[in-house]
């Protein structure tokens, strides 16, 4: 396909972008095919993200959060990763059906991503200014000079003095590097920003700063946010909606209110119970027993059953269906087949 027709193809599709939903993931399945086994990393994840909203993808290490994020960018390392099925729509464009050239035009422009470890996600031999300007130059028709000026503006936006644009990554601290990474991601004003554990590698005081800065920028730039984290506190601070991932499936999703205050899934309950209680510091933590199942040998039926205190034999036989309990709230637990089933911590009437 010639360059011109790529441009028009994108323009044709871009009309749909006015729609309220900027990101839609439908029934995403991603596997990593290794020599002797298949890692079933993501097994049917679906969610929608509307303009200016923020969704938190929560889960333990290995729940498939990062793989989901990479799949949205269509950046799953291949080999060994394979997107088996599913649809991913970013601003009305199907990310999984686009040609590489078309994808390159969307990445960084309509959707961009912040990675977990700021220490390694910047190129050590390019100045931070160059790295931000590179993104601007790729997506906008500007001169080198203008792109660099934009880079300086972006640095100032994330709280780094503009004159540091000519410095190299090793001259910045971890928190500053993450700010640079954020500046790169936001340089072209994307509709969707995926933040993959953006504060995990930072210490707590810096975490708070970076998060509140991200919150401000999200408002300022009208960006929708996918916040990937294992930290429920971060979700509470940043997000409007929450999806809880377990072994590559969404076990519970809803608004912050739905999931935090009307928790329905036993796994979500377990996550909350393993957090320290600030009102009762003496209270014992109740960690979820056991480990997440080996993603190369996922059990039949509910993958959480082996760690679940509510599990019955029926749970181990059938994969729980996602049931809608309210306009916004869904849960995937077979025990709700029984009328009147409630988890212990149920607080709703």
């Amino acid at each position: 396909m010639s360059k011109k027709s790529v441009d028009t193809a994108i323009k044709d599709q871009a009309v749909v972008c006015n729609d309220d939903v900027v990101l839609e993931v439908e029934d995403l399945v991603v596997h990593y095919v290794l020599k002797k086994s298949v890692v079933e990393a993501v097994n049917g994840v679906s969610f929608k993200l509307k303009k200016r909203r923020a969704i938190g993808l929560v889960g333990e290490t290995g729940a498939g959060k990062t793989t989901t994020a990479l799949a949205i960018m269509n950046l799953v390392p291949d080999p060994p990763g394979i997107i088996k099925s599913g649809n991913i729509t970013v601003c009305g464009r199907d990310m999984l059906k686009l040609k590489p050239q078309q994808l390159e035009k969307i990445r960084g422009k309509d959707i961009s991503m912040i990675f977990q470890d700021p220490m390694t996600s910047l190129n050590p031999v390019m100045t931070v200014g160059q790295q931000i300007a590179e993104s601007v130059r790729l997506h906008e028709r500007v001169s080198k000079q203008e792109a660099f000026e934009r880079a300086i503006e972006m640095l100032e936006l994330v709280g780094i003095p503009g004159e540091r644009a000519n410095d190299y990554p090793h001259q910045f601290s971890g928190g500053m590097k993450q700010r640079v990474v954020i500046a790169i991601a936001l340089a072209c004003n994307p509709s969707v920003l995926i933040a993959d554990e953006p504060t995990t590698a930072l210490d707590v005081t810096i975490q708070a700063q970076v998060l509140s800065m991200m919150n401000d920028l999200k408002e300022k730039c009208n960006t929708a946010l996918v916040m990937i984290t294992h930290d429920l506190g971060v979700v509470a601070k940043m997000c409007d909606d929450v999806a809880v991932l377990y072994a590559g499936r969404i076990v519970e999703s809803g608004t912050l209110e739905d999931v935090f205050n009307n928790t329905m899934h036993p796994y979500t309950e377990g996550l909350f119970n393993s957090l320290p209680n600030i009102e009762n510091r003496g209270a014992e933590l109740k960690p979820i027993p056991g480990l997440m199942p080996d993603p190369t040998k996922l059990p039949a039926g509910c993958t959480f059953a082996d760690r679940c205190s509510y599990a019955t034999d029926a749970c181990r036989e059938k994969v729980p269906e996602t049931r809608r309990v309210s306009e916004t709230h869904t849960v995937a637990c077979s025990r709700y087949d029984e009328p009147g089933f409630r988890i212990e911590g149920w607080q709703h009437g």
Binding site: L103, D117, N123, L138, A185
Partner: peptide, 12 residues
């Protein structure tokens, strides 16, 4: 990781 960052910002 910086190669992934580059790809994520749309570098061909």
């Amino acid at each position: 990781d910086y190669l992934r960052t580059a790809r994520a910002k749309g570098v061909p």
